[in-house]
């Protein structure tokens, strides 16, 4: 018998600190599968955010840098500009990327910085215990929206791929999910495309990954997957929002306001 599935080599063989059912682990794995398949671990530098994945530097076997909250794109810019032959990625959550780091996110995209951003959208602040994120869906109960997010009080969520797809510097803006095996396969393909863009010097690529947070959603892991499918995907439609190698806005599913 031959091994048909095992841990990618660039994912260090230690247990993670993530909660049971947290999909960070899936995204880590497919990212590492791409790094392994492209054979680029030795030439890759990753930048971690502040949030649940703050300690992801312990899991990725490439060189890693831990950035301040929201500043990973700026740190990655400093790395990439001085090491243009290296592969540079950031791994950021929704609070990090779309709240405190919004300026860094928008400008790294509009500069067409030749890096990859993996954006984990789980509609909540996980590490601090479940507060409202910029992506928290209207009506969603969190610690700081105890009666559900009321847009009159707390405003509306940010749709990151839609926003960044308007910028000329963006080469790829794609939203994927990790709720099922077919979607995970899509997600991996998107990450591969993002790294291929970097290899070809096409500019900024972002892959937004709809993810779960069973603990702070107060749901069992399988129920959390169901919420992702029933509530998140309708609000955050999956698809390619921009792809300079193909058409733009082509295969985005219908929005839901």
């Amino acid at each position: 018998m031959a091994v048909v599935f095992e841990r990618p080599k660039s994912l260090i063989d230690i247990p993670t600190h993530y909660c049971p059912g947290c999909t960070h682990g899936i995204v880590h794995r497919i990212l590492c599968e791409v790094i392994d398949e492209m054979g680029i671990e030795g030439d890759t530098i990753g930048v971690c955010p502040v949030g649940c994945s703050v300690m992801a530097y312990d899991y990725f076997n490439c060189d890693m840098i831990e950035a301040a909250h929201g500043r990973a794109p700026a740190v990655a810019t400093g790395v990439k500009r001085t090491n243009p032959d290296k592969y540079v990625f950031t791994y950021q959550g929704d609070g990090d990327l779309a709240a405190i780091g919004t300026a860094e996110t928008v400008h790294v995209a509009t500069r067409g910085e030749n890096i990859v951003v993996i954006f984990i959208n789980n509609t909540i602040y996980g590490m601090t215990g479940g507060q409202m994120a910029p992506t928290t869906i209207p009506g969603q109960v969190t610690q700081t929206t105890p009666f559900g997010r009321d847009p009159q009080l707390a405003g509306f969520p940010v749709r990151v791929c839609e926003m960044l797809s308007t910028l000329t510097g963006t080469a790829l803006a794609q939203r994927v999910a990790v709720d099922s095996v077919p979607h995970i396969r899509e997600a991996k393909k998107a990450i591969r495309k993002a790294f291929e863009n970097q290899k070809a010097g096409r500019g900024f690529s972002i892959v937004e990954v709809l993810s779960t947070c069973p603990t702070n959603w107060g749901l069992a892991p399988l129920d959390a997957i169901k919420r992702l499918q029933d509530e998140m995907i309708p609000y955050y439609p999956l698809g390619v929002y921009k792809d300079v190698t193909e058409g733009v806005f082509e295969n985005v599913q219908g929005g839901n306001e």
Binding site: F5, E6, V181
Partner: peptide, 19 residues
């Protein structure tokens, strides 16, 4: 059947599949 779908869903790389 060795489809590895269980392993692909596993967030903890706790499953190996052989075929």
């Amino acid at each position: 059947i060795g489809c590895a779908m269980c392993a692909m869903m596993c967030p903890d790389c706790a499953i190996t599949v052989e075929k």
